[in-house]
């Protein structure tokens, strides 16, 4: 009676609206399940939150510092300290001469009286100067080199050439600290990246392990659902949503942590910057890193759950 006849097809429910409805129900019921064990949910979410907050917070900090160093245009300046005997007119002549050079973009003369006024204003040692008979400060020609000029060697060569002027006592390249700052931020950047990758891995493992335990706890239920004809997708779904929710909660906690930390740091940083005559503040909140947290958290949660589900669900078969 049976052989050679085509097997009848199974009926499958492919109505997209029921499908969506079931997903909505499942996501809510997963959230409900999490809310029934608030402490363990909060602890898992907090661990994820901290793991996400650390790299993104550090990234914001490094970003801000880089922004600080960028306000120096990324290029260095060369300061020419003129000999004490050089008069203001001679100094101006020197400045004009130097301004002719092809590798110089801009020059500025700070003559001796200007230098004195600036020193008085900024250093806080104004009264001490009054005790001196004469102005001890030399005139300075500030050079902003052409932007094409790159690398410490080029600056050093330029300084060497300028040193040859009789009127110039010292040609100083104010480059090193900019370079150092750049190098430091690049190093930190890389370190933060490595940290972020490691912590993302940690989040995967945390969520994976949480879901693995959940699968073990519901071993019997999974068996029974398989017995009555639950598809793998149906069984997988609540666990994936649980991972997703863990990620969402973790991301929320991370955002709160980062914003709180920025808020708490901003005052002290402004005071510190004030001491360096800067109006720098931690105002730069890179939207990409915040978006990264907001989407990365849920994504990592989902991925972690997927790993656990993929590994452990197939092993559970009804007997």
């Amino acid at each position: 009676m049976i052989p050679n006849k085509r097997s009848p097809k199974f009926k499958r429910n492919r109505n997209p609206i029921t499908w969506l409805l079931r997903h909505a129900q499942m996501s809510l019921s997963s959230l409900g399940r999490l809310s029934r064990s608030p402490i363990s949910t909060a602890m898992t979410a907090a661990v994820i939150g901290i793991a996400l907050a650390l790299p993104s917070g550090l990234h914001l900090l490094v970003d801000n510092v880089r922004d600080l160093s960028n306000t120096w245009d990324g290029t260095a300046s060369v300061s020419l300290f003129l000999a004490e005997s050089v008069t203001d007119e001679q100094a101006e002549a020197v400045r004009q001469q130097i301004a002719q050079r092809s590798d110089v973009a801009d020059t500025q003369l700070i003559d001796r009286s200007q230098a004195l006024a600036e020193f008085r204003r900024l250093s806080g040692f104004g009264e001490a100067l009054d005790l001196l008979d004469s102005n001890p400060l030399p005139a300075v020609v500030l050079i902003r080199p052409q932007p094409q000029l790159e690398g410490a060697d080029a600056y050093a060569r330029m300084a060497e050439e300028l040193q040859a002027y009789r009127e110039i006592e010292l040609a100083q390249v104010d480059l090193q600290w900019v370079e150092r700052l750049g190098a430091i931020t690049r190093t930190f950047d890389r370190a933060v990246f490595i940290l972020a990758v490691l912590l993302a891995g940690a989040v995967l493992l945390i969520v994976g392990n949480t879901i693995r335990l959940e699968i073990q706890n519901r071993h019997g239920e999974i068996e029974i659902v398989k017995l009555v004809g639950g598809t793998d997708a149906f069984i997988r779904r609540p666990f994936l949503y649980e991972g997703l929710w863990h990620g969402v909660l973790g991301a929320l906690i991370a955002l709160i942590l980062v914003l709180t930390a920025l808020f708490m740091l901003d005052g002290p940083v402004q005071r510190l910057a004030g001491l360096y005559q800067s109006d720098f503040s931690l105002a730069v909140i890179d939207p990409f890193s915040l978006l990264g947290v907001a989407f990365g958290g849920p994504l990592l949660g989902l991925a972690g759950a997927w790993l656990a589900v993929g590994r452990h669900l197939a092993q559970i078969q009804p007997e």
Partner: peptide, 12 residues
Amino acid sequence: KLKTRDIPYHRR
């Protein structure tokens, strides 16, 4: 000949 992914439908 039933595929593994069809088992749930069979069990229904």
